[in-house]
């Protein structure tokens, strides 16, 4: 195949992929005027769903970051028996269908689940609550964060950690003052991916947390519920979700670029920058 023909084939594939991926998104907006989008927020179902989605997603993210960051650090920086198994187990939800996640959460935390009796005796009933939504989001989205965080920590130059130790910092202080700030771009990217996954979560939430306005009916569940009764409202809410997710993606891109900018982390291309700095300031 000639080079030109190959380039044409690549371009055709890209055009096909773009058309396929962009068309449904465009279609959502083609049927939704901006006015309709704004007025959909007056609809209590949409407003409650948006607010609930934001609340539960942020709570789930906080839990993921607080627990997932140290866990990822351990996995990335230590070798121990069973580590490979732990990594696989943590990534498993990534490939599980949401329905399986829902069943699994019920089987674990439901009244008939493994922990059901213990939870009941503690007076805790999880299914069909907002807490259940947060648990479902954590379950499906945290692998995205942990994976990314682990990769970021694994790429951390070990001599930075060692330099911190020789400068009198304990392992814990080194983690907080060097590892986390240096890996922040990677951690932010992981947070973004997890946020996206959590915001769009549907199946596991429906199965484990049910669907109730203001309690467990997140934006995707509200879209599904309105789909049959009020299609224009469903469209408006879908558009809302696209806007929120798109804004998030853009913020991540811009934030990531700024962080890795001239004052940011050392990475590829750094030497060129250093060389420029050198010529700019004669010693």
């Amino acid at each position: 195949m000639t080079r030109a023909a190959f380039t044409a084939a690549l371009a055709a594939a890209l055009a096909l992929a773009l058309a396929f991926l962009v068309l449904p998104v465009v279609a959502i907006f083609a049927d939704t005027s901006p006015g309709r989008l704004v007025s959909s927020l007056d609809n209590p179902v949409a407003a409650d769903a948006l607010w609930l989605s934001v609340r539960t997603t942020l709570t789930a993210l906080a839990v993921m970051v607080v627990v997932g960051t140290p866990a990822a650090y351990l996995l990335a920086t230590r070798r121990f028996p069973g580590r490979a198994l732990a990594v696989t187990a943590l990534e498993l939800p990534l490939v599980l269908p949401p329905a399986v996640a829902g069943i699994g959460l019920l089987a674990a935390f439901g009244p008939r689940g493994i922990l059901g009796e213990a939870l009941a005796s503690a007076g805790v009933r999880l299914p069909l609550t907002t807490t259940a939504v947060v648990l479902a989001l954590c379950f499906v989205a945290s692998p995205f964060y942990v994976r990314q965080a682990q990769a970021a920590f694994a790429a951390l130059d070990p001599s930075l950690v060692e330099a911190s130790r020789t400068l009198g910092a304990s392992e814990a202080r080194t983690f907080a003052r060097v590892a986390v700030p240096v890996c922040l771009p990677g951690l932010a990217a992981g947070t973004g991916l997890a946020f996206g996954r959590a915001l769009g979560e549907f199946g596991a939430t429906l199965m484990f947390a049910g669907s109730l306005q203001g309690v467990s009916q997140t934006l995707p569940l509200a879209i599904y519920a309105s789909f049959a009764t009020d299609f224009p409202a469903a469209l408006a809410m879908s558009a809302l979700l696209v806007v929120v997710s798109g804004a998030l993606l853009a913020a991540l891109r811009i934030g990531g670029a700024r962080w890795a900018g001239p004052t940011g982390a050392v990475r590829l291309g750094d030497d060129a920058r250093a060389a420029r700095a050198q010529t700019a300031q004669p010693a």
């Binding site: 001599s159 930075l160 060692e162 330099a163 060097v178 940011g264």
Partner: peptide, 20 residues
């Protein structure tokens, strides 16, 4: 004695300066 309590001044080959 762990490294943080030895108080040595270590200069790494690539300097290992904290980029942040």
């Amino acid at each position: 004695v762990p490294p943080e309590r030895r108080r040595v001044g270590y200069v790494f080959q690539d300097y290992a300066l904290f980029p942040h």
